[in-house]
């Protein structure tokens, strides 16, 4: 059994992100219990995110031991989760050189289970309306010690598919977004604090895992 993990690497102000990127790759290459990994420098426009997104596929018997990134130049902290996939989809498993988007979110305390289930299904419905979502995965967080409850990840061919079609589609602003909006009294289930990160994608992560 394998465990999916995603991490936001936060660097100290002024840290050299390229140097950190190189150091992270060197550090995790060949780590025992690591089946695959992906590292990306976050692009401008992220919020609640670090400077790099790291995705790991770990062997279950060693996955409870956190990877130590403290030797990375400029390292400040990690914000990461392990998660279990609820559902995923692949339209383009051979995608190369695209965009990897990670949304970590927290279901509000006291949110009704029925509404949370609807949120999950509505989120998973997005690719049925948006061709630009090439591959996707929604996961429930399984690791302790984090406030995040869900991870919603997508792979795009270009940044325009994320910033254009995804954000501007009525299924997004007119439907799923209600779940994130405190002005909707009856359907709001997601806390307003989010981690929205996107970075260059080398090749599929969803299809690999």
């Amino acid at each position: 059994m394998s465990i999916c993990e995603t991490l936001q690497i936060h660097l100290k102000p002024g840290a050299d992100t390229t140097q950190a990127d190189t150091a992270i790759r060197e550090h995790i290459t060949g780590l025992p219990g690591l089946q695959s990994w992906h590292v990306g420098l976050n692009l401008e426009g992220c919020w609640g995110a670090g400077q790099l997104t790291v995705d790991l596929l770990r062997e279950a018997d060693s996955a409870d031991r956190p990877i130590d990134f403290s030797g990375v130049p400029g390292f400040e902290r990690t914000d990461g989760v392990q998660y279990q996939t609820i559902e995923q989809g692949l339209r383009q498993p051979d995608i190369q050189g695209g965009i990897w988007r990670t949304l970590m979110l927290q279901i509000r305390d006291g949110a009704a289970a029925e509404e949370v289930a609807k949120f999950e299904q509505e989120t998973l419905g997005m690719p049925r309306y948006m061709r630009g979502i090439r591959n996707w995965r929604l996961g429930r967080v399984t690791s302790p010690g984090t406030h995040w409850t869900h991870v919603w990840q997508q792979e795009y061919t270009t940044i325009n598919d994320l910033m254009g079609e995804y954000l501007l589609h009525p299924y997004h602003w007119g439907w799923v977004d209600r779940r994130f909006d405190p002005e909707f009294p009856d359907v709001w289930v997601v806390d307003t604090g989010l981690c929205h990160a996107f970075c260059p994608l080398e090749s599929t992560i969803v299809g690999r895992d």
Binding site: Y129, R131, P170, G174, W175, R178, F184, P185
Partner: peptide, 18 residues
Amino acid sequence: ERRRHVMGDATQPLPQPL
């Protein structure tokens, strides 16, 4: 009780599932 609705122009075709 209170509800909020988001609405578009009904004369425009509705976006459909692919």
